[in-house]
Design a protein around this nucleic acid. Structure first.
Lengths: 235, 235
DNA sequence: GAGGAAATATTTGTATACCTTTCTAGCGGA
DNA sequence: TCCGCTAGAAAGGTATACAAATATTTCCTC
């Protein structure tokens, strides 16, 4: 039940390739906010930092470029992509459409094991929230929440849909936190919504499941004019 | 509008990079059916054929792998992806969802120039069909039809949506023709549907436009059991 | 002739060298 | 001071060399 990434599970020795290493390292830098929008991505510098040559670095940057996380132009140095409010809105709208569809399909396909996994994930998220409070639970929450959504996407049994959700519609957590409602407002509602999605999946009710997922995502969707007064004046 | 295909144009304009050349050449080989599912993609062989080194070939193959057109496994030679009937159904379903959404957005955003471009494209398609007949018009049709859909996708003004439609949900024409209804059945209906989509866009009616696009795409969607009896016996 | 292990040939993965283009610091003139 | 220009430096693009792994052939045993 606690298997994280060992799909085949035979041997985890598997010596990750240099481009896999580079890809995950750079992606992590961006998604966690260690590198911010506009930061320069110099191939030599990254190669030295990660300990491989420029070749795998270039391959990793190209993948991240295709996913929209970095911007590459010929002969120009790559930079971390900038996400405007409009970008965030667009991503959430597309996520809602595609993840709603995925949830609908998942409702009639998901296995009992996956349902239990979802319940366990949500239980841990809520426990950590109660124990650690609003801010300290965030790091663990992001990871667990990502798996919660990934399990549902996988249960839809549509490999291209799963891939699009995992690769093309990612948003750095820092950007998300910048544009969305503050964590105090959305945390309790998120947990209630997760429980409702789980209930709809258990009931194997595609329409309900889709609607619940849509409600969840649209509730997080930032709006251009209305809901940003809470932004702190500093910065 | 965009003057693509500037092969060695008279203008000094932007000599295409080696990876762009390789990417388009290989992609064309696959989409037109010159290379079929399962065919081996040897880097050295492609490099020699296209006249560049392995480096840009590898970059092109990686892009095509991300788009789902080729399958790469570490240390194994790449092969042209295989598209099953289920794959074709999945792609058309996702296209319908996303392109329907794009058409809805386009209805309230599309420019007069783009509307005229769509009308012109449809006019040429119908003219060529009348003049060349069912089979001979196909090559030209595929290109014009692709632009018809691309203009609408661009008019939606959602760059990620446009990119997903252009890159992640492509299907080789040969595969499409294998699984879909024969050209004699679908050609006239396709033109009627294009006219309806155009009318809905002109009327700036998002719901109508989305529904018309969905009808168009779902009418092309192959079904697992019902609609393939027309397949000629020679299998 | 079949099966399988070792030897050989191919093929991909990575590092490095070299070329082309962009970036930047410094200079000179208005 | 502010442009504009121009080398020199820096960075990305491509070709090539070499290492690691796979694919194929050879050859032995039965």
């Amino acid at each position: 039940m606690t298997n994280e990434t060992t799909r085949d599970g035979v041997k985890d020795g598997a010596t990750q390739s240099a481009v896999e290493t580079a890809y995950h390292r750079i992606r992590h830098l961006i998604l966690t906010g260690e590198m911010r929008s506009g930061d320069k991505l110099l191939e030599n510098q990254l190669a030295a930092a990660i300990g491989v040559s420029r070749t795998p670095i270039r391959e990793a940057l190209n993948r991240l470029n295709a996913e929209g996380l970095v911007v590459l132009e010929r002969y120009r140095r790559g930079i971390v992509a900038d996400f405007s409010l409009d970008d965030a809105i667009e991503i959430f709208r597309l996520r809602a459409i595609l993840e709603g569809h995925a949830t609908s399909r998942a409702a009639s396909r998901i296995s009992e094991a996956d349902l239990q996994r979802l319940q366990e994930l949500e239980r841990v998220m809520e426990t950590q929230f109660e124990e650690l409070g609003w801010n300290e639970h965030l790091e663990g929450f992001d990871k667990l929440n990502a798996e919660f959504h990934a399990v549902i996407a996988a249960a839809a049994e549509s490999p291209r849909l799963e891939k699009i959700l995992a690769s093309s519609l990612e948003l750095p957590a820092s950007i998300f936190n910048r544009y969305s409602e503050p964590v105090e407002v959305r945390t309790r509602r998120t947990h209630a919504q997760h429980r409702e999605i789980l209930a709809a999946l258990r009931a194997r009710n595609p329409e309900w499941a889709q609607a619940a997922m849509n409600a969840h995502l649209f509730s997080l969707l930032p709006t251009a004019s209305g809901s940003l007064e809470h932004e702190d004046g500093a910065k």
